[in-house]
Design a protein around this nucleic acid. Sequence first.
DNA 1: TGCTCAAAACCTGTATGACATGTTTTCTTG
DNA 2: CAAGAAAACATGTCATACAGGTTTTGAGCA
Lengths: 240, 240
Amino acid sequence: MVSDRGIGPDETNPGLVSAAIQAITQHIRVEGLGPGDLLPSEADMTRKLSVSRTVVREAFRSLSAMRLIDMSAGRRASVAKLDIGAMSMVIEHGVTTEQISIQQVYDVRRTIEMRTVALAALRRTDAEAAEIQKCAQLMRENYRAPEIVMEHDIAFHEAIARASHNPVFSLIINAFSGVTRRTWVIGWRTRATEEEQIRMIEGHADIARAIVAGNPQLAAEHMAAHFDKSVKALIDAGIA
Amino acid sequence: MVSDRGIGPDETNPGLVSAAIQAITQHIRVEGLGPGDLLPSEADMTRKLSVSRTVVREAFRSLSAMRLIDMSAGRRASVAKLDIGAMSMVIEHGVTTEQISIQQVYDVRRTIEMRTVALAALRRTDAEAAEIQKCAQLMRENYRAPEIVMEHDIAFHEAIARASHNPVFSLIINAFSGVTRRTWVIGWRTRATEEEQIRMIEGHADIARAIVAGNPQLAAEHMAAHFDKSVKALIDAGIA
DNA sequence: TGCTCAAAACCTGTATGACATGTTTTCTTG
DNA sequence: CAAGAAAACATGTCATACAGGTTTTGAGCA
C-alpha cells in the first residue's frame, strides 16, 4: 500500500539532483556533522560533483524544504535541528489528496498519545507538568473562544509529547497538528451544549492532574476516554 | 524541543521558492487533485507567479524530493501516491545527527506495532495473513543468512502494518525501516547462540499465528515480548 | 473516412553567465 | 591594537540556451 517500489530513503533515483542530495546527506553522515555544523558551499559541491550550480542548488533547496538543513542568504547551509518539516507535509498531502482519512489520523494519535501521556506521567519535569496544566487552564479560561481553545488544546498535546522525552513522539504528534487545526472545529461544533464543551475541557484537566500526580495508568485512561469522545464526535459529524 | 518556531507546515518562510511551494500545494488542495492528476507546467507556474523558472523549478524539485509529486523528463509533474519519502529522511537525519537514539526509535516502534499487530489480527485479509506467515517462514528457512533474515524481518513488520489497513501506520513503520536496516545486525550478534537466534525467529512465528487466528490480544502480547527482547539485545550491545 | 507515422509543439534536465544582496574575512588606517 | 572600509565569499534570482523525452498535430495514404 505504501512504498510499492523497493527503494530506500535515499535510493539512486536517476538524475543528477538525487545524486547530489545523496552526496550531501552522505557528507553529513561521514563527517559526523551535528546541528549547526556548516556544509560545503554550493561552489565547493559544484566542483566536487562536477555538475552545474543549478543541480547543486536544487539539491540544497530540497534538503532545506525538508528542513534537514538551514539555508539563508550569504551564509553557508548548516545542519538543521530536528523539525517536523517534511513530516507534516507528508501527512497533510495524504489527507488533502484523500489517501488518509481523519479517522485514521485519530487512531494513530490515540495509539501514540496513550503512550506519551504515560511516559509524561513518569518522566515529566516540574516545569513540564506546570506547562501542561497551564494549557488545560487556558482552555478553561477561554472556553467561549473556540479558536483559542483549539490552540491551547494542540499545545497541550504537544507539551505532553515533549514531556515524554522522546523526540520521535514529539515529531509525529507535531506533524499531525496541521491536520488537527483543520478538523478540530468540526468536533467542537458537534458538542452541542455548553455543558458538553465544558466536559471536554475538563477531560484535559483530568489528564493534566494524572500527569502531575505521576500516575501513568490513570493518565492513559483519561487520554483514552478523551480520544474515544473525540472520535465519536467526528463520526457524529459524518467524518469518514 | 521540536518546532520551537510557531510555524506550520507550509508557513510563509521568506523567499520566492517557499511561496512557490505553497502555491503548488495550494493548487492541489483547491483543485482537489488526487494521485496521478497533472500539475501545471513550470512555464505556467512561472507566468502565474511572475517569477523565474529557476524559482519554480526549485519548488517543484523540493516537492519531488519529499515525494509529494512525481516528476520525469518531458512530462508534467503529477500528484504522487502516498510514500514514506520525506518521512524516512527526517528519521534518518535525526539518527545520524544523534538527535534521536536507536532506543527511542524502538520505543516508538513498540508503541505503534502493539497496535498494528492487534489491528492486523482483526482486519487482515486471508492474503495478508498468508503473506505475514510467509515472511516468518522465510526467516526460518534462511536463519543462517543474517542479511536475508533481516530483510524478511523488516518485510514481516511492514506486512503487519499494511494489514492494519491504516496507511499512516504503514507510513511510519516504513519510515523506520532504513534505521532498522542499519542496526538490526547488532541485535542479531548479541544473540550469541544459535538456539537464541532460533527463538527470536520463532517469536515472529508466534506473532504470525496469533494474527492468523484473529486473536489481537495474543498477537499484541507476542509483539510486546518480541520488542522487549530486541531492546534488551540492543542494550546488551551497548546501544544508547 | 480512417489509419499511420513523421513533424511540430511542448516539457523537463542541465549548463552558463550575470548581477543583487547578505556575510565573513582581510587589510588599512588612525 | 582597535575600528572601519574594502575585498572575498556566499546565496537569491533572473535570463538564455540547448539536449532529449513526451504529447499533439497534421499530412499523406489506404
